[in-house]
Amino acid sequence: MGSQFVDFNGDGHVDYLSATFDGSPHISYGSEKGWSVPEHLRDAQGERILITSFWNYEDGQHQETTRAMSGDDITGERCISALAFDWDADGDYDLLLGSYENGHLYRQMNEGSNAAPEFTGKNIPVMTGKVPFALIARLTTPRLVDWDSDGDMDLIVGSIGDSYGTGKGGGVYLSRNLGKPGAPSFGAFETLIVPSSKGQSAPTRPDAGLYADAVDFDGDGDLDLIVGGYSLWTPKARNISADEQEKVKALQAERQAVSRDRQKVSSKLSQAIMEATKGMDRKSPEAIEKVKPIRAKYMPDITPLTRQIAELDKQISEYIPSKQKASFVWLYERK
């Protein structure tokens, strides 16, 4: 959920622009009375602004559309970040839309005004040099800031990285604006925060899902970063006695047995779903309705087994530390 505070409609009050995992930017208008209930931003045709993937609230499912793209060859890109930026310096805000999956960035131009915007409904790829802007480790959100104090807005971007396993984590990057007013041109990525290699025994930094904001946090004249994200670590194991080792073996054996039981019931559930929805689009409302009673039949057996596994994991972790994952917000202060 990338956020930007900006006077979007030019009425003298700061508004709150953000995009969510439903695939579209939203706006909450500010006023003397406070913040309005957020609503979708719409283009000149009245359609939700998006890239291709979106959550359809009426149908209750994720769907795809290529109506906002120039061709049918780009799919599977969900807008989870949005920025207001006057790309062509004509006095009104255009939109930058960040794609989660491929880390692409698009612009959608405003052919109206801030008070009466008319977004075209068509996304144009933002380039870094001659190649499309692409953050392969998946884009969290871009931020606009004059990082190099040359009078134009540069981009600070964060990446997701591997949020669950031992793969490389996320980082933060700078893409300088090398263009001129009305014709921005963003350069190749420069690393500000190196992607995490993880493997620590305590939380020492954000390892995955890095959402950064560039601000002069300490008022010393240079830009710092505040970064939200997940820290992943495994506490150091203590020496355990022979008796404790035996206890751990017994707990692990019990866990294996309960896992096998759960797997048996889960397999029956999966099989029943596959048979009941054979030939159907499993994302369709009809298939989803058909699955509901099947889940209701098997979940009462699966849920207690899942809880039992969690309790056994907790007991085992008292002797053998388990991987930890927790969210924090970090300050990276400039030297």
């Binding site: 969290t140 959100t141 601000v215 917000v329 400039r334």
Partner: peptide, 28 residues
Amino acid sequence: VSLFKSPVRLEAGDNFLGQKRLYPSPVL
């Protein structure tokens, strides 16, 4: 890599900022 000092967790009241959130995204 030495552009910044070692990162520190921000605090809000008695807690760390951004705890128990699904992908926290801060902005000042």
